[in-house]
Write a protein that binds this DNA or RNA. Structure first.
Lengths: 238, 238
DNA sequence: AAGTGGTCTAGACCACCGG
DNA sequence: CGGTGGTCTAGACCACTTG
């Protein structure tokens, strides 16, 4: 349970939309009605509704009301990469993570630039392959600034690193920048992935920042062409 | 000049950041100082700052202040596809648009589903190739619901359709959903693109909605692998 | 005219950061 | 401790939609 009023309201409405309790194209209660339901002020209700709108759950139309958008057409997460774990679980397929490399290292020039560190810093390097249905289809090269991630183990890397960082370490992730393009496979790709005959690979570079805007992770995910998919929701007119 | 106070403030600060008048990692005036500068209330200032934060221009840190993020590292647009026109102009290369097909048609089953129309509606079909440096690298298949776009001409399609729709027709675009994946080239791709030996193609499906949440456009952009690029900025913790 | 969402205000209290 | 941003309130006026 969150302590924030507007986040609590946001969560409740998201839950109602995702569970089908609020159906697509139906009208939400008006802002004034919600003010009474939740016993709060209108600005607080509006904060929750604005967030729902920006995340693609509802559409607000002046003079008419707020309407539930059809999120089912697009698989969740409504924005961003369909993560390996979610994809595998949704398809009900067997999957696992294989750790090929786990080390504390000095960053080379390339990494110094991408992780914004110097050769005095230490960096965790984690090389993992994601296997689904018996095929290794994603190669994850992750680098963490040791300054922000003092402790990391091979065992953690075999599970969910993010669960560890966010829940156990209580790192607060604030924002991320992604870049997606297509590249030719490297020897590393050939070695650690079941590439079949595909002679290209989709690369996702991911820069992750903490609440104080410090860059703590740089990840390069290399996806086999046929298993790659990305969805995006974006509002205009800011 | 916008009439909204908070949008005016937002625009002014964006302009200062983009022009370098406000430099990365420097502190903005505090909210209370901005209240005095702009002679407004704190909530209005906060609305502008929240928008700046969500669009990746600044980072707000409690107890410390709001700081300018380094937006130059990532090419604009900070979120979304680097459009053909922008890409070509940035690289200073010659480019043009070739219209291969322009017609008003009855939607088939596939289109009825994707554009959410019936066989009683009419749909504009526009098939265009984007050429840069003498190579046709993007094939754009666009479909517009005639209900929202009553008039369209071949001449408009040779220029910028969006400029026409937003400025001349005054259509208000509200949000868009994108899906990105890799596919095998169709005969159409072979015919209208200079595909070289690439045996895959990056497909971007784009669903565009108006302010009343009505779907008015469906576009399928087919990019040659080596010329594709996508950047994304996303905040977490909603 | 009544109801809806959009903007704006003036003020309050809180949590966090720094000296 | 004073200054910062985060949350919340109660009220006002506006623009738009619908009957």
């Amino acid at each position: 349970m969150r302590t924030n009023k507007y986040l609590t309201i946001y969560d409740e409405i998201v839950e109602k939309i995702q569970s089908g309790q609020l159906k697509p194209n139906t009208k939400l209660p008006s802002e004034n009605e919600l003010v009474e339901q939740y016993d709060t002020s209108r600005e607080t209700i509006r904060k929750a509704l604005t967030m729902l709108s920006q995340n693609g759950y509802i559409q607000k139309i002046r003079g008419k009301g707020s309407f539930v958008l059809d999120v089912s057409k697009f698989d969740f997460p409504i924005s961003g990469l369909v993560s390996f774990k979610e994809l595998a679980q949704k398809m009900g397929k067997p999957w696992k993570t294989i750790v090929y490399e786990f080390a504390l290292m000095k960053p080379d020039d390339y990494l110094q630039q991408h992780l914004n560190v110097t050769n005095k810093d230490n960096v965790w390097k984690v090389l993992r392959a994601r296997e689904m249905d018996g095929e290794r289809i994603i190669l994850d090269k992750a680098f963490f600034n040791k300054k922000y991630v003092p402790i990391l183990t091979r065992e953690i890397c075999e599970g969910s690193i993010y669960e560890y960082l966010e829940h156990d370490m209580e790192l607060k992730i604030s924002f991320a920048k992604k870049e997606i393009f297509v590249d030719e496979p490297t020897e590393e790709d050939q070695k650690y992935l079941d590439l079949k005959d595909y002679n290209h690979i989709v690369v996702v570079k991911n820069y992750v920042y903490l609440e104080d805007a410090s860059l703590f992770e740089y990840t390069e995910s290399r996806h086999r062409l046929d298993k790659f998919r990305f969805v995006d929701f974006a509002r205009r007119g800011h």
